[in-house]
Amino acid sequence: MISVSNLKKNYESFQALKGISFDIKEGEFFGLLGPNGAGKTTTISIMSTILEPDEGSVSIAGFDLKNNPTECKKNIGVVPQEIALYNDLSAYDNLLFWGSLYDVPKDVLKVRIDETLQLFGLFDRKDDKVKTYSGGMKRRINIASALLHKPKVLFMDEPTVGIDPQSRNLIFEVLEKLHKEGMTIVYTTHYMEEAERFCDKIGIIDNGQIIAQGTLEELKSLSKMKETIVVSFENLSDSLYANISSEWEGVKRIENAIHFFTSEVNRDLSVIILKCNQAGLSISNIDIQKVNLETIFLSLTGKQLRD
C-alpha cells in the first residue's frame, strides 16, 4: 500500500532525513517511533506531499507521489501534529468545509459528519464554535476532519500529545475501530506504550534514520537481551561509571542509575552486585525490567525515547 524508499531531506545544512525506507501493507498499522527531532514529522510531511524530498521516492496506493500527487492525495487523510481548524466556525461547519475539499457528494458527506461526530462523542456540541472547545475536543475534531473522505491511508502525527485521558481513550477506540475496518494507518509517536498497543509493525527512527523495524516480537528478538537490570546508586560518579562500563558489555547510564542489559538475570544479578560493591558504589535500588521498546531503543541508541 505504501512504499517509502531512501528518503533524504536537508534543512539547509542540517540532515533531517538520512535515507528512510519502509514498506507498509494494506490494512497494516505502522508505528514510527522516535524521540523529539528524530524526523517523524518530516517523513509524514513528505508522504503527504507538502514537502519535497531531496532524494528518494514514495508510492501510495499504487501511485507515485512525485508524478501523481493528486491521486495520492485523494487516498490519504492527514492528521497533523498541530491542531489546524477554523476557530470561529462551529465543529460542524469545520467538518463540512474540510470534507468538501474531497469528492464526496454533499448528502453523503452530511451523513458521514453526523456519524463521525457521534463516533468522537461531540455530536451534542457540533454547533458550538471550535474556539470554545477544550484541547482534547479540538484534537478529536482535528482527527475527524481527516476521515470524512474515507481515505485508504491515514497519517497521524502524534495525535495524543497534550491530551486528557478521556479524549485519549476515545481516540484509541476510534483508531482500533478504523484498524479493524481495514484502514492502513501510519502513526508517529514517542510513546512506546502506544506503539506497543496498536502497531502491527514498528519503525524506530532516530537522527533521521530507521535504526530498526519489524513487528514487536521481531524487534524484541533483535536484541539478544531479555531483561534490563536497573541499579540506582547513591554515589555514582563519572569515574566510577567508567570503571563499570569498561567491564560490562551493554550498559547505559541514566542519571544515578546504570542499566545492565542481560539475557540471564539469575546469573548476572549477583555478579553485578558484587562488582558494584568492589567498585565502592552504594546501591539504593534495584529494578528488573522485561525488555520493551524503551529498552530496545535505549540499547540501540543509548538515549531514552522521552526527554
Binding site: 503527504s48 507538502i50 497533523p80 498541530e82 491542531i83 476532519s145
Partner: peptide, 13 residues
C-alpha cells in the same frame, strides 16, 4: 500560521 494552509495542501485541491 495556524496550520490550516498545510491542511488545505494535504487535500487534492
Amino acid at each position: 500560521q495556524e496550520g490550516t494552509l498545510k491542511k488545505l495542501l494535504y487535500s487534492p485541491i
